[in-house]
Design a protein around this nucleic acid. Structure first.
Lengths: 247, 247
DNA sequence: CCTATCAAATATTTCGATCTATAATTTACT
DNA sequence: AGTAAATTATAGATCGAAATATTTGATAGG
């Protein structure tokens, strides 16, 4: 792990290496659930899609695999990690354990500055539209970013960059599930109210209440994903060809 | 991170790729605290030491960096992660949080088979010598392996491979600190008794007692490392040249 | 004497080609 | 036909060299 984590050089692919650029782009696509066609991810395909040589691509793939977003078999290349209801369940359970601890610590060590950041994060999230009018079937990437930022801020004061990194990693995995299964019409869920409750209780220093709200939030999300899983849906949705066109 | 973790292909470098071989060897050396001379780790140096081309070496370095064992700056190469008392403190704190949860879950979901594995792991650890007679200044690698295995077994029944992976990662980091600072004469500490206590309470289903013993064990170890840190010791100990021979 | 600028040297990153292992297909044999 | 061995095709892994970026060292100017 990363670092347990994600983004050693800042986020942009601005001035970085080609390897980092491919890493960021591919990572985005993975979280967005844009791939997932078949499980194999051929180097050559990535090369032609992101315009880089084999070496940088390979480095990017190695990083993603170490992070758990891809799998790897020596001599047999890389593949997209499969998704399953069981895995999502385990993931959610783990996430609840870690985030509970992180939130409690954050609340215990809260500072005025952190509280302000939290207020800001909530405000920004409230302003964003979850779904854009022009494409009501997909989540608004901007909302996704702010949502991510909100949850990250919640635990930012926990005092452990390791724990934050682990939570990020689980959050990435959860994103993948959420965005894969949430394609289609939105649910009637009132996200904003949930986030507001979490933030309010946190700011009140009500650790038990905040934790309860946060875990319910995660569990509900997971339950909805599993729901859709079981309702059967086409797991093959994005791009990403696997074998050459069959003859 | 890894998978949250460490060892996607099993451990041996037997039949794997060159990249994996370098990965495993270098990883071993990092955990053993064998490097640490200077912070920079030049690709060319690794290439000549482990006998592989730049591409596989680079892949290995990328994996290790994603895992948090190395750092990386785009265009400026890789470096050994620095060590500090503050970092060790944070690491230990995080480790206690995660291992407590993992141990409690393990105990809650224990099975006969798991209990047997734990008994075995303890037995093997008891049999091994911590320091070999021929080199009393360094830990016995075999003991290290069994020690690692014991702690891993403790939490193996927690029901989350994510959590296990995170604990492994923290355990790796802790190893590094322990083996860097533990060079020199052993302390009069009775390790075996500590491990036995942890195991007994665990097998008794005494979660609170087991957790208490486990956390004390970790905290004591960390305290001893920090002790040696402050007593000043030469951080430059292993191999690993950094700049060309100065003229 | 200190600081800024430019040039040489050193490292890192990337590409293109080659080599090797695995997967697919055909052929041979029972 | 059915299975096993051999062959061909495909994708992954590695090497060696070329292209970039950075650090070092020297020099000129304030």
């Amino acid at each position: 792990m990363t670092n347990g984590n994600a983004d050693p050089d800042g986020g942009k692919s601005a001035k970085g290496t080609l390897a980092s650029s491919v890493y960021h782009q591919l990572r985005e696509d993975l979280l967005r659930g844009a791939l997932e066609a078949e499980s194999k991810l051929r180097v050559e395909w990535v090369v032609s899609r992101y315009g880089a040589g084999a070496s940088p691509v390979r480095e990017a793939l190695n990083r993603l695999a170490a992070e758990g977003l891809l799998g790897r078999h020596d001599q047999r290349g890389f593949f997209l990690m499969p998704v399953s209801a069981a895995e999502l369940e385990e993931l959610t359970r783990t996430r609840c354990w870690l985030e509970e601890r992180a939130l409690r610590e954050s609340i215990a060590h809260r500072t005025a500055e952190w509280e302000e950041q939290l207020v800001l994060a909530l405000h920004r999230l409230a302003r964003a539209e979850r779904r854009l009018p022009d494409d009501p079937a997909t989540n608004n990437p901007e909302w996704e970013k702010l949502h991510r930022a909100f949850h990250r801020t919640l635990i930012a004061a926990c005092g452990s960059h390791w724990l934050i990194g682990f939570c990020d990693q689980l959050s990435d995995q959860a994103s993948r599930y959420r965005l894969i299964s949430q394609r289609g019409p939105g649910s009637g869920r009132d996200d904003l109210a949930e986030h507001r409750t979490i933030a309010e209780r946190t700011l009140d220093g009500d650790a038990d209440g905040a934790v309860e709200a946060l875990l319910s939030h995660y569990r509900l999300t997971a339950a909805m994903c599993i729901e859709r899983f079981n309702q059967g849906y086409d797991p093959h949705a994005g791009a990403g060809k696997t074998t050459r066109g069959r003859k």
